[in-house]
Design a protein around this nucleic acid. Structure first.
Lengths: 141, 141
DNA sequence: CTCACTGCAAAGGTTTTGCAGTGGG
DNA sequence: CCCACTGCAAAACCTTTGCAGTGAG
């Protein structure tokens, strides 16, 4: 995944979005922070270099980025939303100790699930996507 | 899963919890509503027969039930929490159209995943549990 | 230039907290 | 009886919204 400022500008304009400093900063923050940050962590991160960004703006931009498939929400069983800038097909490792969420990419697994459910045919339901949460602990925890 | 009032009383006292009318009502509501309700739906449901229950109480009781493994949080990418009274190992079908979440029990799938990851051995991570979200649409949607 | 975007501040919705009073064991 | 639990109300949070002003194309 390419992530220089120039490449962020390109991603935005490819989607027909105006390339504003705020949008660049938010995408850049998500990429740099890496660990599926909350809106609040993104806001704090950006304010270090750009103290004037409004939190309302961050939420609006995140919605826009999600609509335009540049960012995904990460599902958790907490009530604070977390965001993910990796748009490749992947799953997540959830640490139940420290709340860290790490990407887990595994094409073989996707193939396995796809095949399994093709034969399974759940009645009355049409599958679009799988999201596997792998919960456990990192050794360092 | 047994769910009469008497059985609910037993579940509570087995965990060493005081058997209060509020706790019974909340567990009973979750079982009866079935469809992974929000706290708000639980509160409305209970108030029909017990108008005096405080919403703070419901949240406190839900936390207690979760700590004592009588209820689980359901993972979603929304900011409202949903609750699940089915403590058997199972996964969920998520309808992206109508927000319905339905239980999906499949021991064969659990076996498949268990075996797959036993050989896989993710470095630095110790797996405790899998949660598979199966996203799609019900035919009626 | 113009319309989409931002900043600001207020409002909305959900969940948590503190405390006095109650009731289950 | 006593301590855990409940009701009530306020507060804390996170997120959304409205609007006037700004700036990207």
């Amino acid at each position: 995944m390419e992530r220089t400022i120039e490449q962020i500008r390109n991603k935005l304009s490819e989607k027909g979005l105006k390339v504003t400093p705020q949008r660049i900063a938010i995408l850049d923050a998500i990429y740099r922070i890496g660990s599926h940050p909350t809106a609040d962590i993104i806001i704090e991160y950006i304010r270090r270099s750009n103290p004037n960004i409004a939190s309302g703006t961050v939420y609006k931009v995140l919605d826009t980025l999600i609509e335009n498939k540049l960012v995904k929400r990460v599902t958790t069983d907490r009530d604070v939303m977390r965001y993910d800038g990796n748009m490749e097909k992947h799953h997540h490792l959830y640490c139940v100790e420290c709340d860290v969420i790490e990407d887990y990419v595994d094409d073989e697994l996707d193939e396995l699930l796809k095949n399994y459910f093709e034969n399974k045919n759940i009645k009355g339901f049409h599958i679009k996507e799988f999201v596997l949460q792998i919960k456990g602990t990192f050794n360092k925890c």
